[in-house]
Write a protein that binds this DNA or RNA. Structure first.
Lengths: 290, 290
DNA sequence: TTAAATTACGCATACCGTAATTATC
DNA sequence: GATAATTACGGTATGCGTAATTTAA
């Protein structure tokens, strides 16, 4: 059974007339007659009676017309889906990002993307750098976003934004001076980019996190709340502490931390879909606008 | 887009492996690769990424897989319907019959048919001989059943049963003798086979219905009830009056009426479907059993 | 005599398989 | 070097069109 046979069958059935159906299909009566004959012969069913010099549908033909229409309708839907997939009217874009990027930097971009392309389903996975890279390598994410720069060979990496890292403390703690070795710390878990930034700062000051009094928490928000409560100093992204600074709950200690970059990673071999390309264009325009 | 292309696409998508999909389909990797390429090229969509020495589905491919499966499932349903239509597991049988046959003779046969072939939808139209013949000629009924013998050339006719016509009266009226000219009559409308039988009887006795006192009613049941109430004599099929006779509400007057035949008519040019053929076999076996 | 379907037949295209090629592991 | 996909290429087969045939109005 062929979709073309069904199309021909429907044209004939609707008109009960081979010649007119052929004209409507842009075929000759000969071709149409052969197609119907093939359909009937393959399944051993008589769809039309050859009555007089014309044809008339049989009961089986009437019943099958409903089926044929349903198949063709479903096929048309699938074809439309394929066309939509080629454009930006349908599709899925799977993102993976580190905590800071996924929680603070990506959401406004995703919002703008969604407004521009409402038909695209957006998905976001948040994890550490290793997990993000794994998602992209396995093909479970189209695009990954991490702070670190070293990635596997099969991934390409591109800088898409930057971030100020700030040493922050509660106002009370900030008043006790900036002798880092004498103050308690709040930090993220190992493997986190934010944790790496803090370790880099301490290394510059000749300190090691392992030697210091510290509270270790698994999310930026937990760290921020703990610091607000006076639990210690922390290195956090400006994106994370922006509102706490504005509210006066935190203060910045001048630590001269270098800015940190955000990177997008993608699989080199994998095809860049239109949904993904549009997202990268959005990032580029947002970066140049900022 | 072809059903075959969809089949191939699904096989590849399920395995993410061209060679194994080809083996499962009984094709060569070359043919499978070409089919996928054709599908992608026609719609401008990349369904698979060529990654390393293998392939991996793209997001569009994942989305389209659902569509492709739906189309193929629907096509399989249609194909099954076609197979069912060729057998006796599905279909429709449209019958048309005169009042006496449709109300008394056909129902038990239709019941037996339904038990044997539950998948076949049975339809019955009841009308006068002309209406029944018209239904068959127009193809709105597969098989017609009438008492009269003269039919249009495009119809074939076959005797399928017989019927005793009885002159009946209420017990009170029966006691008044059998001088037909002196008694009132109850009869069917013109065009009815039962009416024709009554006119034939009167003609033999040298009478004309138009000259007699009569009540004219449009159904056998109405005539029967009127006769039971003493409204007059009537000629009715034994099938119609059987229960009234058994109950003693009617009596038979010996009129020596000849038995009447039931005939099946069908369109000569129209194909005899399996459902129709099975019904005719059922009639034949019922007739030989009786 | 016309109209309609089908059949006969030649041709073109599409599709499949074999074999060669490319590319990765 | 082995495996996997793709490309190149030749043959076949399906399907269309032209034209002839059949059949009925």
């Amino acid at each position: 059974m062929t979709l073309e046979q069904l199309r021909i069958f429907i044209a004939v059935a609707e008109r009960e007339h081979v010649t007119r159906a052929a004209a409507a299909l842009g075929l000759t009566p000969s071709a149409v007659s052969a197609a119907i004959a093939a359909l009937e012969a393959r399944h051993g069913v008589v769809l039309f009676d050859r009555i007089g010099r014309g044809i008339a549908m049989t009961g089986a033909g009437r019943d099958f017309l409903i089926e044929a229409r349903a198949v063709l309708d479903r096929a048309a839907e699938a074809e439309a889906a394929l066309t939509d997939l080629a454009g930006l009217r349908r599709g899925r874009l799977c993102l993976a990002a580190s905590q800071t990027i996924g929680n603070y930097w990506l959401p406004p971009l995703m919002h703008r993307y969604r407004l521009a392309h409402p038909g695209i389903v957006l998905e976001l996975f948040i994890g550490n750098s290793r997990q993000v890279a794994a998602k992209v390598i396995e093909g479970l994410a189209d695009l990954g976003f991490i702070e670190s720069e070293g990635v596997a060979d099969e991934l390409s990496i591109e800088t898409v934004g930057s971030d100020d890292m700030l040493l922050v403390a509660s106002p009370a703690l900030a008043a006790r001076g900036d002798d880092l070795g004498a103050l308690p710390f709040v930090c993220r878990e190992p493997g986190s980019g934010t944790r790496a930034a803090m370790e880099a700062l301490l290394r510059v000051r000749g300190l090691c996190l392992g030697d210091l009094s510290r509270l270790e928490l698994p999310s930026n928000e937990a760290v921020c709340r703990a610091v607000e409560a006076g639990a210690g100093l922390a290195v956090l992204s400006r994106l994370v502490v922006a509102s706490a600074l504005a509210a006066g709950n935190l203060q910045v200690l001048d630590a001269g931390l270098p800015p940190r970059s955000f990177h997008a990673i993608r699989h080199r071999g994998r095809h860049q879909g239109v949904a993904e390309a549009a997202f990268r264009r959005l990032i580029a325009s947002a970066g140049s606008a900022a």
